[in-house]
Design a protein around this nucleic acid. Structure first.
Length: 241
DNA sequence: CGAGTTTGACCGGCGC
DNA sequence: GCGCCGGTCAAACTCG
C-alpha cells in the first residue's frame, strides 16, 4: 500500500512539475482564490486518486498550481476537515491548542458563519485559524490554520491539563506541507465503551480494545487519512534524501 | 472580577 | 474613485 501511495505521489508530482514547466506565467489573483484553489489541490491532489475527495472543481486546481504551492509553503496554511454531529452547530474544533475567538463573519460563498481564532497558549504565538462549516456537507467543519506555532503542543508541556482535552491531532498545523484530514466524530462507540466526552475529560483513560479497533478500522478506510499518511511518509523520505 | 465570547464598526485590498 | 468583501478591532456582554 505504501509503495502504491508513493507511486501515486510521484506521478502526481511529476504531472505538477510538467504543468508548471508548460505554464510558468500565471498572475496572482485574489487571496480567496488561492485559498479555495489550494483547498482543491489538498483535498484531492495529494491522494493521487480523487475518488472520495470533498472537492468538486478540479479544473480550478489546475489553473494556478504554482501559486498554490508557493502560498501553502510560505504561509504555512493547512486545512483540516472535522466531521461532527449534524445537530452540533458550534464551530469549536478541539485540536489540543488553546484558541481565543476574535471575530465571526458570514461570508458570501457560504451561509454558515466563519469564526476567527488566535492561538492564546503563548502570547508570542501568531498562529490563526478560521473555522467554517462546509457548503457541501454542513456536518463537516473546515479548519484553516495559518502560521506556525512557536511553542510545543500543550499536551507535551501540560499532559494532565484539562484544557488540553482533545489529544487527537490529525495533522500538525505547523506542518510545512499542506495536508488535509477528515475526522469522524459521529461514530458512536458501543454502549459499554466510554463516550466521546468521557474520553475528552479523561485523556489518560485506558481505551477499550474494541474502541481501538473501531478507530483503526475507521482510519484505515479513510482515503484522506491514507493520503495524508502517505504524504507525510513520502515527505519524510524525500527530506532524508 | 477576570477571562472569554459576541457583534457591529472599521480598515484595507481588490475588481470594475 | 467607488463599492464589495474578508479580516480585525474593541466595547458590551456572559459566565464561572
Amino acid at each position: 500500500m505504501l509503495t502504491e501511495m508513493c507511486e501515486n505521489y510521484n506521478t502526481l508530482r511529476n504531472n505538477l512539475m510538467e504543468y508548471m514547466r508548460k505554464n510558468p506565467d500565471h498572475k496572482e489573483k485574489r487571496k480567496s482564490d488561492e485559498i479555495s484553489s489550494s483547498n482543491n489541490l489538498m483535498g484531492g491532489g495529494v491522494t493521487g486518486n480523487n475518488s472520495e475527495s470533498s472537492s468538486s472543481d478540479e479544473d480550478q486546481s489546475c489553473k494556478k498550481p504554482r501559486q498554490i504551492v508557493e502560498t501553502c509553503i510560505k504561509a504555512k496554511v493547512s486545512r483540516v476537515y472535522f466531521k461532527t454531529e449534524s445537530s452540533d452547530s458550534s464551530l469549536i474544533v478541539k485540536d489540543g491548542y488553546q484558541w481565543r475567538k476574535y471575530g465571526q463573519k458570514v461570508t458570501r460563498d457560504n451561509p454558515s458563519p466563519r469564526a476567527y481564532f488566535k492561538c492564546s497558549f503563548a502570547p508570542s504565538c501568531t498562529v490563526k485559524k478560521k473555522v467554517q462549516r462546509s457548503v457541501d456537507d454542513p456536518s463537516v467543519v473546515v479548519a484553516t490554520y495559518e502560521g506556525e506555532h512557536n511553542h510545543p503542543h500543550p499536551s507535551q508541556t501540560e499532559p494532565t491539563n484539562n484544557r488540553c482535552r482533545n489529544q487527537i491531532s490529525p495533522v500538525a498545523p505547523s506542518s510545512s506541507a499542506p495536508s488535509t484530514v477528515t475526522l469522524d466524530w459521529t461514530k458512536k462507540a458501543p454502549s459499554s465503551a466510554p463516550s466521546k466526552n468521557m474520553m475528552i475529560n479523561n485523556p489518560k483513560m485506558e481505551v477499550p480494545q474494541i474502541l481501538v479497533e473501531q478507530m483503526a478500522t475507521s482510519l484505515t478506510k479513510d482515503l484522506n487519512f491514507r493520503a495524508a499518511l502517505a504524504a507525510a511518509i513520502s515527505g519524510k523520505m524525500l527530506h532524508q534524501n
